[in-house]
């Protein structure tokens, strides 16, 4: 799991709390993500999974506790925060490709503007990545011309183009037509095999079993259960987890 021998966790959340007004969405969250680990976060809608994910690159601020990324507390703002975000990729449920830019531009924008990579080098790398996710032929199209599954694969390429230390996936397949789910999961499984550190909010059990090292079950802003995928899906410890699993298994 630790190809460079660095055993410090990549991310460490300590006593993290977060409110939206009166709503307590994250309650005393303690969690570590090791380098190269694939962590699946699962739980009912509204349990705080997205908020947890977004807190890790500070798209959401937290009220108390702390989040350590690669040995440093998350910066609060400015250049340091932008730099942190460039090291943490994010893939959204609704893809969020830049609608006015071509697929190629979507992938090169970050490297060119944030990393100051030369345009032609960024272009070459973008084509490699698009090749890898199977979209190279569409490089000069606009996002709206692609299917949902293709757009999500481009979003993954866009994240990869920054050479991130970790990628956060917030329900990457939930907005997709069923026939497109697998093509996105296949790309993600490939990333996991290559050793990418990933935090994945998903209910795709097949993916969790195939690629995850650990499953975290959340309910009402708390981490209720943490286990290996096999243990979690066959032998959940808590009633809430069993109840939740029975619901997602029946359909």
């Amino acid at each position: 799991m630790t190809e460079n021998g660095d055993v410090t966790p990549l991310v460490k959340l300590e006593h993290v709390d977060k409110h939206f007004g009166a709503l307590h969405v994250l309650r005393d969250i303690n969690l570590t993500v090791s380098r190269g680990e694939v962590l699946v976060v699962i739980g009912p809608s509204g349990s705080g999974k997205s908020t947890l994910c977004r807190a890790m690159n500070r798209l959401e601020t937290i009220d108390s506790g702390q989040i350590i990324f690669d040995g440093q507390p998350l910066p609060a703002e400015g250049k340091a925060l932008a730099r942190l975000r460039s090291e943490v990729g994010m893939v959204f449920q609704s893809f969020n490709l830049f609608a006015h830019k071509t697929i190629r531009e979507n992938v090169t924008l970050g490297p060119v503007k944030v990393r100051k990579v030369a345009k032609d080098a960024a272009d070459r790398r973008a084509m490699e990545l698009l090749e890898r996710v199977g979209i190279a032929a569409q490089a000069d199209k606009y996002p709206a011309q692609l299917s949902g599954g293709q757009q999500q694969r481009v979003a993954i390429a866009r994240a990869l183009a920054m050479d991130p230390k970790m990628i956060l996936f917030d329900e990457p397949t939930s907005a997709l037509d069923p026939e497109m789910v697998q093509e996105v999961l296949d790309v993600m499984v490939g990333l996991a095999r290559d050793g990418m550190t990933m935090v994945v909010v998903t209910h795709e059990m097949g993916f969790a079993r195939k690629a995850a090292n650990r499953v975290v079950f959340m309910a009402d802003g708390q981490i209720v259960e943490e286990n290996t995928p096999d243990e979690f899906f066959t032998n959940a410890q808590t009633d809430r987890a069993r109840d939740f699993l029975s619901k997602i298994l029946t359909h």
Partner: peptide, 24 residues
């Protein structure tokens, strides 16, 4: 989501505004 994706790749507020939000 356009602004969030932009911030998530490390673009600053000003870059997000001028390259992503205002053109659209």
């Amino acid at each position: 989501g356009q602004a969030e994706a932009s911030r998530a790749i490390g673009l600053t507020f000003f870059q997000t505004l001028t390259m992503i939000i205002l053109p659209q």
